[in-house]
């Protein structure tokens, strides 16, 4: 399951990230924010308008906004 398919308020662990599909600086910024393989995350909110984009992700004590395109590059498993 990729992160974009994760229902809201479900905790999941990122098991794999398709880094090459992301721009290098985007990957760098995601890792700097602690979003990486092994990170536990939860979708808190989704954007308005069509497409439910962007996503507000809970990472540890932080809330991080990212796009669905980033979420689709991440494989998660339920915990």
């Amino acid at each position: 399951m990729n992160l974009d398919d994760l229902p809201a308020s479900h905790r999941a662990r990122i098991v794999a990230v398709d880094w090459p599909s992301l721009a290098p600086e985007e990957g760098k910024r995601l890792r700097a924010l602690g979003i990486d393989e092994g990170t536990e995350v939860e979708i808190a909110h989704r954007g308005i308008f069509a497409g439910k984009d962007p996503i507000a992700l809970i990472v540890g004590k932080m809330t991080v906004a990212l796009r669905r395109s980033h979420a689709r590059a991440m494989t998660v498993e339920d915990i």
Binding site: L22, R29, M62, L66, S69
Partner: peptide, 10 residues
């Protein structure tokens, strides 16, 4: 150019 991403801490 390529559409940009959006990654930021709230």
């Amino acid at each position: 150019g390529r559409a940009s991403g959006f990654i930021m801490e709230l």
